[in-house]
Design a protein around this nucleic acid. Sequence first.
DNA 1: AATATATATCGGTTTTTCCCGATATACCAA
DNA 2: TTGGTATATCGGGAAAAACCGATATATATT
Lengths: 99, 99
Amino acid sequence: MSELEIFKALSNQTRLQILYWLKEPDKHFPPQEHSFTEVGICVGQIQQKCGLTQSTVSEYLALLLRAGLLQATRMGQWTYYKRNEEAFEALGHFVQSTL
Amino acid sequence: MSELEIFKALSNQTRLQILYWLKEPDKHFPPQEHSFTEVGICVGQIQQKCGLTQSTVSEYLALLLRAGLLQATRMGQWTYYKRNEEAFEALGHFVQSTL
DNA sequence: AATATATATCGGTTTTTCCCGATATACCAA
DNA sequence: TTGGTATATCGGGAAAAACCGATATATATT
């Protein structure tokens, strides 16, 4: 995904907030069956904290996924999202050396 | 300026292009009276390379300035813009460690 | 003062983004 | 199969961004 698309994905307060929450899931979300670091957080949990509708949050997560900033894992009827830390490192490096 | 405003400023292909040109002014702009690294490039030169209108380019530069990514120097009837490299370093660090 | 040039700002149209409700799809359980 | 829950997708209204042309402002020159 292009840097332009990444910056667009980051140009929204709610999406930045989601990324912040997902940085330390155990601090921001209640305990769950599956490991935070392995699968991430399901859409419903994120939606509750956002206060936006389910459809909007689902779209935001899909957008962050397309930008490469998140990874998704489908487990049963839930989709778990977690950060793709490699993408953040790569982006930081890009900003420092290329942008 | 907030990171959100910075990411918004970076969410445009033309503005990214301008930042790229300003990274190595001597490679992308004709010689000029004043030192590239000291004052930067004037609006007209940037506008010519963009192909957009003067008003649009002026607004883009003002936007990048407000975001803290550029610095401006008024000299006579010209305004010279150059990159604020500290802002890029700070942003890269932010992406790596905080975002 | 009058003119010319460079840049900034203003008003408006088109495009994109934001965010919603409704609906579709996927999966699970009875 | 039927019904229930989780997520994704679709269609659309409202807000913001992307540009533009016209005009205002600032500076320099004559």
